[in-house]
Design a protein around this nucleic acid. Sequence first.
DNA 1: CTGTATCCAACTCGATACTG
DNA 2: CAGTATCGAGTTGGATACAG
Lengths: 127, 127
Amino acid sequence: MINKETIGYSFGMIKLNGNTYQYSAEIFFEMFDDRLKLMIIWYLSNGSMRFKELSKYLQPITNKTLSAKLKQLEELHLIEREVFAEVPPRVEYTLSPHGQQLKPVIDEVIAWSQHYAKTFGQTINEE
Amino acid sequence: MINKETIGYSFGMIKLNGNTYQYSAEIFFEMFDDRLKLMIIWYLSNGSMRFKELSKYLQPITNKTLSAKLKQLEELHLIEREVFAEVPPRVEYTLSPHGQQLKPVIDEVIAWSQHYAKTFGQTINEE
DNA sequence: CTGTATCCAACTCGATACTG
DNA sequence: CAGTATCGAGTTGGATACAG
């Protein structure tokens, strides 16, 4: 039997964008059920980035996919899009307040990964 | 430009299971690039569960898919599988030490989701 | 109960080409 | 530079049936 306290207390049902959730964490799991959105949050947790810059780090990603993911994240209120009236065009993506609140999640992901890498991975030093 | 300190310091390349990663966090993102594995960790973070119990919570999941995901998590050293010599058979799945170290990640996921739900969701109380 | 085997629908995402 | 359009390969994961 699930212990409601440990798994994230359920005080009823949550309605969000037409969907119903019993536990709020399910919102996160559905939101980040793909390969890319949380990675983009991770990159942006470092500061704002341009479209092309993100594209470079996420290679091999296509413009279509990146564009779609950024739009989804904006609709989820996790990032903000700023267009500069320049030639060539410049668009910067930044974490919204709610996106920035994902920083503790990202930090724990980094900490866990470093520990996991130390146990099971092999490190190749640079010089 | 990515700030290596903030994004999880890169001290070289990491080799793991034949793959090469620049940042350890990439291990996590590749590991949990599907819809189910982190959800299973979330359920098991509450204590061990049997196959059928997990299946019930993850509906609509098929035996094939659940079986495959549990095997993958075991190969990643995140869960442990214990078979009891009973009739009918009983198999219990439990977080391994490395799986338990994901608890802080899960906790932050729960905290963030609750806050997000409070902002954008609508709560329907039980009674 | 705890799986495995087959089949297949849906979705994600990349390749390529093109636009303002 | 920052997208959009079209196409298609690959993967995930469900439906169904069956086994130990």
